[in-house]
Every structure is written in C-alpha cells, then in structure tokens.
Design a protein around this nucleic acid. Structure first.
Lengths: 200, 200
DNA sequence: AAATGGTTTAACCAAATGGTTAACAAATGT
DNA sequence: ACATTTGTTAACCATTTGGTTAAACCATTT
C-alpha cells in the first residue's frame, strides 16, 4: 500500500519551497527533491503547479487565520486581549518566519485568490473586536478613535517588523543578534505602547 | 547616433515590470515589449537579467532613501518631524505604490544584495534621529523608551498598511474605496497616536 | 563617398521547465 | 489465485526563456 502520507509529504515540501521562493521562483523539480519523490507525483496528486500552489496558499492561510481570531473572537477584556495577541502572535511568527511575507506577497500578486478566501469557512471576522472597541469608547474607557484604524495600528506594529526585517535591519543598522532581542522585547512593548495611546 | 535615452527607456520599463512581478516573475520579453524595443537591447545595455534587475533595485532604493532621510537627518523639532514624515511618506507611497513591497520582498530574497547597499553612498543614516530621541528623553520631554523601538513603531505604522494592503482589506473587511480614505486619514492620525504614546 | 563605430534588429540556440506517457509495482477486492 | 485499481518511476515532449550572433542601420569622420 502507498505511504498514506505521500500527499502530505508533497504538500509539506511545497510549503517549504513556495514560502521561501514564492510561486514564480519555485521549481516543480525543487519541490520534488525536497519531498524526495518523483516529479510526476506532484502532478498525480495536484494536477499542476497552480493547483499545488493554491493548496499551499490555502494551508498557509489556515495556519494564520486562527492566530487572527485570537484578537477577533475571544471574549476577554480589551487590554488583556491586546497583550495576549501581540505576545502570542510574535511567538507564532517566530516559529513560522516566512508565513506573513509569503501570504502578503502572494495575495498582492493574485488578487483573484482573494475572492476564493473571502468565502473561506475559517475566515477571520473582525466585527466582534470592532464592536468591543466601540463599546469601550462609548463607556468612556478609551479615547474616541476609529476602531479600524486601531486594529490597523496593532497589526502593523506586530507584523511589519517581520515582513520588513531585512530592510529595517539595513536602514536602522541593527545586527541580527540585536534584532532578535528587539523582537522579543516587542512581545510586551507593543501592548504597552498601544494601550498608553488609547487609554483616557 | 543612438537615441541617448534608450538606456533610460529600458530602465523605466524594467522598473515597471520588476516592481509589479518581481525578479522571478518578470520576463525579459515582457520588459522589451513594455519598452517597445528589441529584446537584444536589454542585453546590449545591461548584459543580463541579473544586472538589469540590480540596476532596478538600486534605482528603487535611491528613490526610497531620501524619503527615509527626512526623518533621519532633518534638524527640526521631534514632534514636527514625526508629523511631516508620516504625512509626506504616505503621499510618496501613494505615488509609488509598488515600491515598498518590491524592495522588501527582493531584499528578503537577495540577502547578498544587502551587502551591496550597505556601502551605498545615499544609505540612510539613522544615528542623528536616534540621538535626537535620546536627547529628548534625557531632557525629560518624552517617555523613556528604546529609540530603535520607537523608530520601528513609526515605520511600521506608516509602511505596513501599504505592504499588507490586500491582506488587511481582506481580513478587516474593508472595501477599496474606504481603504483609500483610511490611508489619507493616517497622514495625521499616525503622528497623533505616536506622539500621544511617547509624550510625558 | 568610403570607412568607422556605436546602435538596432531578426533569427537563432541551448538550457530550463511544466507537464505527459507508458510501463511497472503494490494493494485491494473477488 | 487473479483481476482491478491505485501508486510510482523513468523517459520523454513541447514550450518558454535567457541569452547570442551576424547582419543591417545610421550618424559622424576622413
């Protein structure tokens, strides 16, 4: 009988290669080598490069989505939520360093794909969080600022240091070792900074 | 005699294509078509794809660098500097929407290139700004926070909404028209938020 | 006007690349 | 045991792609 995980083996190899090189830069042979498997198997299981790629992008999004849902759905105090999110999200990216860059880059270059994900079952729904922020504003607990802008800020502060790592290290003259420390510091720093900018 | 701008015509076409598709996704023929010119001319002027690409990446960096230097070098009040930077930088990216994503993506995928830019004459130097922040801290005018973290925050808040546009619109459920407004709002909002988070 | 030297073009080439095929092996069902 | 389906492989194929070449073009010099 076949090793029942051949399909998964291929998918894992494809994830590794696609995340590192992107759709355009990845070679089918390279993925086959990574999976230690014959190239024809890629086509046997996934028909062609485009479909294999879509499976990878989907799987990447499925990894990311639950992390987003932490801030969106969880019913806890807003400040606590912000602290938990930035910390857990940074840990998550440290374990999946290519994920955000990959998703962002490929989403930018495959706008058609956005439609496909729109109807995705696990698609994060930001409404609960936005409502929570509005409620806090109405209750006079935080400053009156556009909830969407606030979430945009939080995501920017958390994700960009990873996506723009090379540019930031270059421009700010930060060596690799120090950058790692800086990212760790941000696990608490982001929440502090963010909360201090919204609390009345 | 040659049209003395042929080289520039090629470079412009290459910028257009490379910024849109990246190094791996761009085709030499496509660049030639964009320039309305024979493909062999690309090799006549730039030898090969790699060198043409490097010229494009260099030119992109040369466009970006002066925008960075606004916050780094200009000798004005810190708050004023922050206001001016976020506003002018957003305007700048709106006119060059592919620039940051392109540079970030390609820098991440060509780490060797980082070395080349390191010794670039126009390379932004963050030291003056970092010193300015330290001085303000010592003078008790702003909260004591790591200057590098602060600059990282400012850059994240400003650049990420562009780089992650597609993902953010998708995840936060923001239609295109509204997103444009949001970016405009950020021209003043970022500085407000940022300043309120550091002022004592 | 002939020679010169840089510029431009069409045709060509070799390698890389996504994809197919046909034969073979391993399970599975009867 | 045998036939059928499923999984796997090596060899092959067509197209794309980066890059080359040799001849033509054209402005300036002699």
């Amino acid at each position: 009988m076949k090793d029942s995980s051949t399909e998964q083996t291929i998918l894992n190899a494809a994830i590794t290669i696609f995340e590192k090189k992107g759709m355009a830069g990845a070679r089918m042979q390279e993925i086959a080598d990574e999976a230690k498997i014959n190239k024809a198997m890629l086509h046997y299981y996934f028909r062609n490069k485009q479909q294999l790629f879509e499976a990878v992008l989907m799987s990447a999004f499925q990894k990311l989505a639950p992390q987003m849902n932490i801030i969106f759905a969880l019913e806890i105090d807003l400040y606590e939520k912000i602290r938990r999110f930035s910390s857990s999200y940074i840990d998550f990216i440290l374990e999946n360093p290519y994920l955000p860059s990959f998703i962002i880059h490929e989403l930018n270059h495959n706008p058609d794909f956005v439609t496909k994900i729109m109807s995705h079952p696990n698609k994060p729904d930001p409404k609960p969080l936005l409502r929570q922020i509005e409620a806090e504003i109405e209750a006079g607990k935080i400053k009156r600022k556009s909830p969407k802008q606030l979430v945009l800020n939080l995501l920017s502060l958390t994700i960009f240091p990873f996506v723009g790592e090379t540019l930031l290290k270059l421009v700010l003259d930060i060596p690799d070792s120090e950058y790692k420390k800086i990212l760790q510091e941000r696990k608490t720093l982001i929440a502090e900074q963010f909360i201090s900018s919204i609390s009345v």
